[in-house]
Design a binder for these strands. Structure first.
Lengths: 192, 192, 192, 192
DNA sequence: AAATAACCGAGACGGTACGTCAAGTCTTGAG
DNA sequence: CTCAAGACTTGACGTACCGTCTCGGTTATTT
């Protein structure tokens, strides 16, 4: 993509916003592979060329749209022990993924084939929140390496449930995930 | 799909095979969303009609092809304790997923939107091996509910690693998964 | 263009007709360079691909449409001498060119660049009527080589008048062309 | 087009020249309907705006470029009779047309539809040289009205040969045109 | 000297049409 | 009824130019 070089008429940022908005809306409405540039352009009230000037293809557009979107912030550490904080963070994560990441996951799966660059981009985005997320856990109760373990297991199980089991991540599931999996794994002094 | 009713010229089973073969080959070559019925027909040396007579659309075809494909069987239980058997089963699972399920995952993600029927179909297929798989684990060392936990965690972490981390599932990772996650979770008498 | 090979569903001849009709109509309405395949398809009630299956591009389509179109037949030889027959034939030719060849001329000029094949095609079409035309002239009054001379001069002057002078070819002009140019040139025994 | 009013920064005449040059070069290279303003601007090293400030559209630009281009002057009258002068003038005319008018003709045909103003402009340009041309012919040998007849027939037959017959205008053709057509028509005392 | 007015390059923008591709349906003729 | 071949409609693709419109910056003339 030819980056805007500063000379010439500057790009209209309202168009960027409109495109992102339309893309995200349609993404959640129809899913990734039913998503068409044509429809995004129409919804955004923008010419197709205006999109193609910015993004090489659908994958790049979705990546940008998702990156720019700001999800809600991870919850502040709460009073109480590790378990309470795990419940808070996992609950937040489950909602976050459930709400809008699904379309993104489709983009990732569908697009990473034949476009390693996109795959990397996606992974970068996905990792973005992880640091902030694991910071919320109280260090003193954690086993060594627990943060990595959390990032490895928690999103995996949540995504797996949503996509492969096709079930919601309700309160009960969050408690199950914390009590039966994460808490035993992460708390200090349990490693065999 | 109009099931063949028995009268008239019978369907040529060699065509079914050729179609499946071509579909799976192209699936791993180009990925799900670059997969075209047109190309499958060409590769299989078969008319498009012959495919549409059998499957409603691309999703159904892929589902059938994946279902019919026989992966290698899960390993027999080995002498030794739970850990050895976990290593064997997880190693097999990782190879299985790594080798060819990726295209299927793309299909699942991309297709489940707007086609709940397909999603269910896919889930049914995915669950098929799980029973056989968990049967391989020695019951006497397992905590109660361990089989479900295994099915919930192991594939999730493997898929997550491949897709989101974009890393291989080598021997080292398998040991890590078993020793740091599965073994602590599943062995009898560890539940708090 | 892949010629239809006989096997498979045959092309629908009514579509050919509709396409030709729409092309000729739009050609005379808007001219060659304002002519779009898209509009032809819409007018003919036919998909764009159905046109592109038959013709490589606009030029080829116009060539075919013009070729297929049957203009009126040249007039029968009339009683009377050479001059009367010349008047009849030239009058017919002028009307023929004036009515609908103009768009074709545009196609020819615009398209022969970069497509020698089309140019040849066009020339073939243009020459088609000439033989029939010159047959109408009474041989016994003609100087040797008069038929070639007629074909060389008469269409040239008519086209030149329409296009370059931008004037109609009325009765007066036809008489002028015959009396002042063609008759002196073609009648036997005048060669110096 | 807003004519430059004298105040403000004056237009850069070198740009006019560059635009004309590029236009004519591309015109002969790719033909009229493959000619794009975008390409002309690129070739001339000039912004599109700079062209659109001067010309309403492609047709106007081509018209101006062709008008400004100076072809070679018609030959001086030579010693000898009418035939020799005809040979000289027709030879010059054939070369002139053959060399570079073809693209112009395409412009004319393609553009006169829907732009009568352009057509008139073109005709004006085409007629420009005719007066000078016919002045070269020795009046005393000419039949009355011969100049008009020459202008009517000679360019017509030349253009027709190039475009419709697709053949070169070599020495032989020039002699044929003069001896078999123009000389008999134009010389004094031959009119029946 | 400043103000004004037009020129200029660069490129965004909404459009229109291009020519291609694949989807899924339909039609023919042969088996 | 199956099958191969291929026509057909539909709809999106990504590209190319169109002609218009900002921008920032550059000359000239006019005040």
């Amino acid at each position: 993509m030819p980056e805007p070089s500063g000379v010439g008429r500057p790009r209209d940022v309202r168009r960027d916003a409109a495109i992102h908005e339309a893309a995200l809306a349609l993404l959640t409405e129809v899913g990734y592979d039913q998503l068409s540039i044509e429809a995004i352009a129409a919804r955004a009230g923008v010419a197709k060329t205006t999109i193609y000037r910015r993004y090489r293809d659908k994958a790049a557009l979705v990546a940008a749209a998702v990156e720019q979107r700001q999800g809600s912030a991870p919850p502040e550490p709460v009073a109480g022990g590790l378990r309470e904080n795990l419940l808070a963070v996992v609950g937040w994560l489950a909602r976050e993924i459930e709400e809008q990441e699904i379309g993104l996951l489709g983009a990732l799966f569908a697009g990473m084939r034949g476009d390693a660059r996109l795959a990397d981009e996606m992974r970068r985005i996905l990792r973005r929140d992880q640091a902030a997320m694991t910071d919320r856990l109280p260090g003193e109760e954690l086993a060594p390496g627990a943060a990595e373990l959390f990032a490895e297991v928690a999103p995996a199980v949540i995504v797996h449930r949503i996509v492969f089991a096709g079930e919601r991540c309700d309160e009960r599931f969050v408690r199950h995930l914390v009590d039966d999996i994460l808490f035993p794994l992460l708390r200090k002094g349990i490693q065999s």
